[in-house]
Amino acid sequence: MNELFPGLAQEIVSGVALGCIYALIALGFTLIFKATEVVNFAQGELMMVGAYVNFFFITIFLDSLGFGNWPSFILALIASIGFSVLFGVFLDFAINKPLKDEPVFSMIMATISVAIILRAVVALIAGPITLVPPSPFGNSVIRLGSVAISTLDLFIILSAVILVSIFYIIFNKTRWGLAMQATAEDPMAAGLMGIPVKKVYRNVWIFATIVATIGGVLLAPRTLLDTNMGFLGLKAFPAAVLGGFGSIPGAIVGGVILGVVETISMGTLSFHFHWIKEINDVIVWIVLILVLMIRPVGILGKEEVERV
């Protein structure tokens, strides 16, 4: 038992950290869906592109300019966010504008194509090898009694909490945030209020791209960098559905739960029950199906109310 606890505690923290990444991807995905009704299957690839761009900036600051670990990390993060703004504007132009009112099927085909193109372009530029991104944390751990927690994981959790809080304040307390909500609810009425709907859509794409990039920056030191990193973004869908599709708090809760379940099942559970190892890849989906059987609208989803 005293063996079990530290392992489990470590796994939970690690799982929450992983879940935070899922939550960030699911947040961007949900925000885009709510505001523009585009189902963006390339959200994971946005994270991948962000992570690569960040790697590129870090090597410039660290190797070419000879800055220290932390200054390089922070400068690269700022530069990557700057890139995300431009990339978001581009995606709004390339995905949102042409696809907005198209049928869901064409939209899904198109965003999947975008995902594949992004993977190919990055592989072309960066080469097909796996990169090891430098992290200012290295492999350092913080010890709480017998529990050792990775500093990187704590940093991921902290960053995600800060990011989500900033998002919450923007979304609920600022003029543009409210305009975003109003546009998501009723774009026609929003336009009649003088809200520049097209600008709101653009802002949503910028925001979702920034969140994805930061997710990528946080995740890369944990998983290493290769072009298949975006597949992890597919977990954003079960996360979003688990939490309640279209609900922003739901996306965050769903992401965290998913991360914890996955980490524990991969660790402690499969150590004690060997058969779990066999079903590890599908455990997430099993949990998803169970939740949906008990509560079809997801954990925080609202029952759809027919409006008259």
Binding site: L178, A179, Q181, E185, A189, G194, I195
Partner: peptide, 29 residues
């Protein structure tokens, strides 16, 4: 949105208030 700026407001058929926003937030919009 540019036409609104010129000083024209349109109250659409069936009201189209923002149902998930509060009354005050609707007026803010």
């Amino acid at each position: 949105d540019d036409i609104v700026r010129l000083g024209m407001s349109h109250v659409p058929e069936n009201r189209h208030v923002f149902p998930e926003l509060t009354v005050r937030e609707n007026l803010q919009m």
